[in-house]
Amino acid sequence: MSQPSPRSVALAMTGASGAQYGLRLLQCLVEADVQVSLMLSRPAQVVIGMETDLSLPGRSREIERFFTERYHARDGQIRVYDREQWTAPVASGSSPPDAMVICPCTTATLSAVATGASRSLLERAADVVLKERRPLILVVRETPFSEVHLENMLKLARMGVTIMPANPAFYHHPQGVDDLVDFMVSRVLDHLRIPNALIRRWGTEPEPEPDE
């Protein structure tokens, strides 16, 4: 029996390049009526300012209000938690999300998750999802990968974690950056079992007419 679509997702964004992936994923989760627990590392907030035209406020409640208004979320649909907010539901196995995505994911965060460091709420939330056997997806953004990175990815993959490096495809003929972002976000949504039509699927175009 296939797993149902998640009703709640913990979304963490770290300081890797690729803030657009996480922001677009947040928007799509809201549109799918998913409850989102959002965690932003301090470097993530810096990168969002560098890579987009967004200027996030400083406090979690203000960020919550900002994204709620930007993505037209229902009241309370997006909850933003501070780095050391240990009273957050995602910090406990008694209240885990249905799934968690770290997007984009730095190799430092990859290492912390692989070793169970739990030095921040973000890392603790990933540790909870692992121990409670919930889906965990890491959209790792780095190139090239060192042996350390690869060993950490293999270790987590053997635990059932989905390792999904930010490697967009080109068969859907992207016309710009947004199309490349949508490709990766679509693949994340697919693994969360959330229906989406962000991209043209492989083999869905009509076959060309044969030459006579």
Rank of each mutant, 00 (worst) to 15 (best):
S5L: 00
R7D: 15
S8I: 11
A10R: 03
L11K: 00
M13E: 01
T14N: 00
A16P: 00
S17C: 04
A19K: 00
A19N: 00
Q20D: 14
G22F: 14
G22R: 08
G22C: 11
L23Y: 10
L23T: 04
L25I: 08
C28T: 08
C28D: 12
A32L: 09
D33F: 09
V34H: 00
Q35K: 03
S37Q: 07
S41N: 02
S41T: 05
S41W: 01
G49W: 13
L54T: 12
L56R: 04
R59K: 12
I63Q: 15
E64M: 11
T68Y: 10
E69Q: 12
Y71R: 01
Y71M: 04
R74C: 11
D75C: 13
G76L: 08
G76T: 09
Q77N: 07
Q77K: 04
R79M: 15
D82N: 10
D82W: 03
R83L: 08
E84F: 09
Q85I: 03
Q85C: 07
Q85R: 10
W86E: 10
A88N: 05
A91P: 12
S92W: 10
S92A: 13
S94M: 06
S94V: 07
S95C: 14
S95L: 09
P96R: 06
D98M: 05
M100E: 04
I102V: 13
C103V: 03
C103I: 03
P104E: 05
P104Y: 06
A108R: 11
A108P: 03
V113H: 10
S118T: 09
R119Q: 15
R119P: 08
S120T: 13
S120P: 03
D127V: 14
V129W: 10
V129I: 14
R133H: 15
R134A: 02
I137P: 09
L138E: 02
L138Q: 06
T143Q: 02
F145T: 00
E147G: 08
V148Y: 02
V148I: 11
M153H: 07
L154D: 08
M159A: 12
G160A: 10
V161E: 07
T162M: 13
I163A: 10
P165L: 00
A166W: 01
A166S: 06
N167R: 13
P168E: 09
H172P: 05
P174Y: 09
G176E: 04
V177R: 04
L180F: 01
D182P: 08
R187T: 06
V188H: 05
D190P: 07
D190R: 11
L192R: 07
L192Y: 10
L192V: 02
R193G: 00
I194W: 15
I194L: 15
N196V: 07
N196W: 13
R200N: 09
G203Y: 07
G203N: 06
E205V: 13
E205Y: 11
P206L: 01
P206C: 03
E207L: 15
E212T: 15
